[in-house]
Design a protein around this nucleic acid. Structure first.
Lengths: 338, 338
DNA sequence: GACTGGCACTCCCGGACCGGGAGTGCCAGA
DNA sequence: TCTGGCACTCCCGGTCCGGGAGTGCCAGTC
């Protein structure tokens, strides 16, 4: 494939993203200084269409890129344009004001939505990859406890436990000591194994209570917390030309389904620094016209993903730069709080 | 105002809500067994229009209710239709599976959205009206603490504190004892006063640390936590005829603005059991075509509001019944966990 | 006096029609 | 290999028109 043909494809992608209208041969040859005439561009366009990179909405209209065309653009043509200094400062300032981990996530998701003018999705840091920092037991009544688990990513999880027998203040302290001895500092991934043996380590008369506690702890550790996500910028879906009314509804519905969102954030290939999934690559019918740009984040290892979701016709260089920059900075913050 | 005229208004509201199309005199006289001819209905309609209860989109079209018309309907005509037994069972089952307070809120908001086919909004239980059950201090490093506050509504709040000096294990225990002695059982409304005197009660060498802690506690108590809300069912905005594309965007934007949502939930007249705000009554330009149905909930006293938001052309009896039923049941649950 | 049938009138809505414009494919020539 | 020219296609916006639904009014009836 010719170098010039690639330039023509780039021109088509850039113009189409900017104007949202099919772009014709004349526009390409004039505005992009290729040094050839419109007729020549037309020949290249015919080739690109044969090869499946662009298509015509109808005869005698300009061309628009196909998913395959965008893919080529992202892989070989788009030069990521870094954030401006002002934008970087804004990101730093806004995120550094976060008061706790939840606030970091909330702020991140808003920031992404605002920077990219798209829908942003941020996964809460996954419990599984973090470890236990502290467990606290609070007795509410003699037979009712509250368990609070604090992880080294700063997450706090709470559960109520009904005890099979009344517990004295000392009993609670004993249990508290026991669970902390066993679990403190341990990765959550190892926790289920440890918890299984927990009841056996308690004083014999506490066995029933310890098992009840263990059941709830287990639940806390493996619970659906990994699936929690924050969403922002849904209003951006209504930007003119982004999605027509018919396709809006399934997307709005999907945004409230954690399962779908997790699938989009794609924990499978979580090792890639940054992933761009265009159209069909999402393997979801409702997202055939949608591109998802995701990045992993975390202190050292990846503890969660964040991403941005928009029409395939999106500003790839800008979006990719924004997601990458924000993911990096959030990782730094988590690193500091380690 | 005639009894029959009221019946005509009811017919118009009900038909319009059902069909989303202006309703004509013929339809009213035929489908609603008023025992009078279309011509008579026309006369009544002319009266209702003069009085401002209905309007014509254009000459020679049927009539649609005005905000004033809906208001009259809600105040005098709509008979709330209770949930079916099956629906009630579903509500009970779904809510009773909640594992903690956050989960109650999450489930409630989904349930409301599903029952009413509208957008649901639920305020997290306000801290200010609850009281402190327990405070926990966890030392992360010698100069860094994590404060966890647990309230009697089951809410957990966490903050980091940087200490001006290194603290020993005993120092932390001292501070922990102190703050719990002072604050346990106290309503959050009283907390700021108590916290102000806190530092003075610590051992002299702990004064600086105690002040640092007090500052953060104060922040925790009065922080924006009161403004947190959960939203669900945004996809319902796209139901055919609910909102046209132009008016969708400002609403989606508002749904991400806590401030606006709080205003809609309206803490002002928080004493009413159930509030219906129709169109202009919301005092927000973007919500001129929107009705908000809200109810307070809480164990005994009101600790938060929940509501549903939809086009003024909504099924009032059904929506009101759903909001009322859910609010009641959530209140019961909170009562049990008290 | 209240209600009714009839009638002329208004206005929306969808479909048909049409001309301009943008863009294309192809071809012959440089 | 590139270019200018040309005939062709098809969308788009505007206009026009007829049918239908609904109204307001009036005269007549109970």
């Amino acid at each position: 494939m010719d170098d010039r043909k690639l330039e023509v494809l780039r021109a088509i992608v850039e113009d189409y993203v900017a104007t949202q209208e099919p772009v014709g041969s004349k526009a390409v040859s004039q505005r992009h200084a290729l040094g050839v005439s419109a007729a020549t561009v037309r020949n290249d366009m015919a080739y690109l269409e044969d090869a499946g990179y662009i298509q015509q909405p109808h005869t005698s209209a300009g061309r628009i890129p196909t998913a395959k065309g965008y893919r080529l653009f992202v892989d070989r043509l788009g030069k990521i344009k870094p954030l401006s200094a002002a934008e970087r400062r804004a990101v730093h300032r806004f995120l550094s004001e976060a008061i706790d981990l939840d606030d970091v996530v909330t702020r991140t998701v808003r920031l992404l939505a605002q920077l990219t003018h798209q829908v942003a999705v941020v996964q809460y840091p996954s419990l599984n990859r973090s470890s236990v920092r502290h467990l606290e037991l609070v007795s509410l009544t003699p037979t009712r406890l509250m368990v609070v688990m604090i992880t080294d990513t700063g997450r706090v999880e709470q559960r109520y436990v009904e005890m099979p027998a009344e517990l004295s203040e000392d009993d609670v302290l004993d249990l508290r000591r026991l669970v902390n001895e066993q679990l403190q500092g341990k990765p959550l991934a190892d926790a289920p194994r440890i918890i299984a043996d927990l009841a056996g380590l308690a004083r014999p008369e506490l066995h029933p209570s310890a098992s009840a506690l263990a059941r709830v702890l287990l639940d806390t550790v493996i619970a659906r917390t990994e699936e929690r996500v924050a969403v922002a910028g849904a209003a951006n879906l209504t930007r003119p030309g982004n999605f027509f009314a018919g396709s809006l509804r399934p997307i709005l519905e999907a945004l409230e389904e954690e399962v779908v969102l997790m699938q989009l954030l794609g924990r499978a290939d979580s090792n890639a620094l940054l992933t761009v999934r265009i159209g069909d690559e999402n393997n979801l019918d409702d997202f055939r016209e949608t591109t998802v740009v995701t990045a992993g984040y975390g202190p050292g290892s990846v503890v969660g993903h964040m991403g941005v979701l928009g029409p395939t016709r999106m500003d790839y260089p800008g979006t990719i730069a924004a997601v990458r920059a924000v993911a990096r900075y959030v990782s730094e913050i988590l690193e500091q709080n380690r």
